[in-house]
Amino acid sequence: MLTVSGVHTFYGAIEALKGVDLEVSAGEIVTLIGANGAGKSTLLMTICGNPPARAGRVIFEGEDITRLPTFEIVRRGIAQSPEGRRIFPRMTVLENLQMGSISAKPGSFNTELERVFHLFPRLKERIDQRAGTMSGGEQQMLAIGRALMSQPRLLLLDEPSLGLAPLVVRQIFQVIKDINREQKMTVFMVEQNAFHALKLAHRGYVMVTGKITMSGTGAELLANEEVRAAYLEGGH
């Protein structure tokens, strides 16, 4: 479904991705782990064309989307809940969700809204609250809910569990599992919470300073000594 091959991305003169290759197949949950500054968020953003790859190709469902403008890319069926959540603080919860449905099929708004409220009942209670005044966990739910509103075929999640209480983390991971299983949505996520994320994932990749250094099934990576030493010590 998604193929990233030989992707190089730069911020000015800084090379953040140094030739990334990976693949996500339809129906999978794929987790990407790596240290701070490895380039994980940059990869998710590059898939969405902001910043675009300077070299290499991003193929989504057989189409080369490397050079498309961001809004064209996401309208093809990709949604992202980005690093830092980036909800619109001066809009209400409902307006944020409406923004999420911009690239959705026309007429799907009400069913998607119900679905998101079913996954996150808290959002329904807060429907008219200004998003900026919500708690961190609520904002994370909103960010994921907003990404789901467009009913994407590929969902990109950047550290969905960051800064959340264990109970909320479990809830969020459960939601990811559910949408993957019930809605057949493909999920590609970046996580610091490597233990939970790899347990949930079908496959995983490890990124070190702009390059993929390891890949395998979730279970394989969880059992791997290097992975355990670098990303799992005391991690759960």
Partner: peptide, 22 residues
């Protein structure tokens, strides 16, 4: 929708783009 897109761009253009706003 246009008005919402305008307010979204005011607050965070990158995010607006990620949601499909031109």
């Amino acid at each position: 929708e246009l008005g919402r897109a305008q307010r979204a761009c005011e607050q965070d253009k990158t995010m607006a783009g990620l949601l499909g706003v031109n």
